[in-house]
């Protein structure tokens, strides 16, 4: 069963932690399409969080197309679909790469090594349903 964990005091805001974990769970297929998530209220109670924080994370996930909200029934993992325009997707990819590369480049790896590592990880996450990733 998929379980969320949040740690206050971390350097990522709590609603971001929720988003990240749900995204990851969907990416690693820990959560399959159509799986239900606890309601905002349940999750807020469970995690001892302000329900607005949970609602905000869910809303963000719904907006990104990761989750969908079915009125009266709850929140479910959505079929993957494109919610962003082409240019937006490009922008987001660039942004993520900027962060990633600026960090990685200071670590004295060669471009080949980096490419290999990325490819391997990509394979793990999307192809062969590997067990665990090394955290966020």
């Amino acid at each position: 069963m998929f379980e969320l964990q949040v740690t206050p005091g971390g350097n990522r805001p709590i609603y971001r932690q929720i988003i990240d974990q749900v995204r990851q769970a969907v990416a690693t297929s820990e959560l399959a399409v159509g799986d239900g998530l606890p309601s905002v209220r349940q999750l807020a109670e469970e995690l001892v969080l302000n329900h607005n924080t949970v609602a905000k994370a869910y809303a963000e996930l719904v907006r990104e197309g990761v989750l969908e909200s079915q009125h009266g029934r709850g929140v479910f993992v959505a079929k993957r679909r494109r919610v962003f325009s082409a240019s937006e997707r490009k922008r987001r990819l660039d942004q993520a790469m900027n962060v990633f590369l600026s960090e990685v480049l200071t670590l004295d790896y060669t471009p080949q090594q980096i490419e290999e590592a990325v490819a391997k990880r990509l394979d793990q996450m999307t192809g062969s349903k590997a067990e665990e990733s090394e955290g966020d």
Binding site: E45, N50, H51
Partner: peptide
Amino acid sequence: LAFARRDDRTILVCTHLLDDVERL
């Protein structure tokens, strides 16, 4: 939190515990 969940309840809380702030 349970109190705040009921509609339209407002809380102003003074605290030094930032973890609680994050939750609340």
